[in-house]
Amino acid sequence: MTEPMTDIAAKTTPLVKVENLRKLYPVSKNIFREAHDFVHAVDDINFEIAPGESLGLVGESGCGKSTTGRMLTKLTDATSGQILLDDKGELIDIAHIQRSDMRRFRRRVQMIFQDPFESLNPRRTVYDTVAESLTVQRIGRVQEREERVAELLHRVGLTPPESFLFRYPHELSGGQRQRVAIARALVIDPTFVVADEPTSMLDVSIRISIMDLMLKLADEFNVSYLYITHDLAVARYMCDRIAVMYLGKIVEIAPTEELLANPRHPYTRALLSAVPVPDPAYKRERVDIKGGISKALNPPPVCRFIERCPRATDQCRTSDHPGFDDLGNGHLVACYNL
């Protein structure tokens, strides 16, 4: 399957290129028995992220979006497929990375986590947390690290930095903790940051300032985000393009406004129609889909959405899971019945 270039990606070589990435989780495996049943958490997905671009990965819980993020940060090993990261013109395959390249990779790819209360070690100070990657990778002297951390704290809006440097997480509010987490991710000057629902645990009034901060820093540090979220409204605010996942498959990728205005996959349509709108005068179009989300345990090779799809035809039932159709403008859809 040839991967069509999107508009943004066409201008430059992609920073991250994911090819046929899969993650299967064995069910009931033990030492004496090979597993026969697998949950297909992520099944054969392809996408690209251009330098400085942010891609939103949207889907319901259990769709594999977090697993994808974890594979890109090497917290989870991929079952198969490639994750190519462009490091100054040189391609590193994250999925099959050599031990010697690990350190370099850790300098390029960072992550921001969902829960600011759990993602900071309660027994370490803000300085220890933010400086950790500098310390581990032996970058700079202690004083230089301290200055760098202070600068980062300043840039994420924790001012004056000296009053935050040696606080413990329990002395910070949720929003402040998430700022620390952002500083930690950016302290080492990465090119690519995976953000896994970084604002979903925060209050509405805090959420926007964190999102604005992330957008501002994306420009300043020239980083690309893979922004994982279940909230399409947040993805719209944060992302240049959105990929919609359903049960381990990406069903649609398009530039944000294009996707919202012109969703083509029946699942995307259902998802969009279900998002509540903060305006009581607005009447949503209703798209009904059947049943609820299930688990991708040994799924048949056909379209994953088939059981809930209002448009399923015989072709869907007999053919393999559809590949991407390019509708132009970087709009890709995996569906037989457009």
Partner: peptide, 24 residues
Amino acid sequence: YLLLKSTPSITGPRRKLAPLEGEP
């Protein structure tokens, strides 16, 4: 007003959201 202004939506024109500064 600020709460409404800081709530993102998937409908309507794409707009700048106004953050609520400070903490409760």
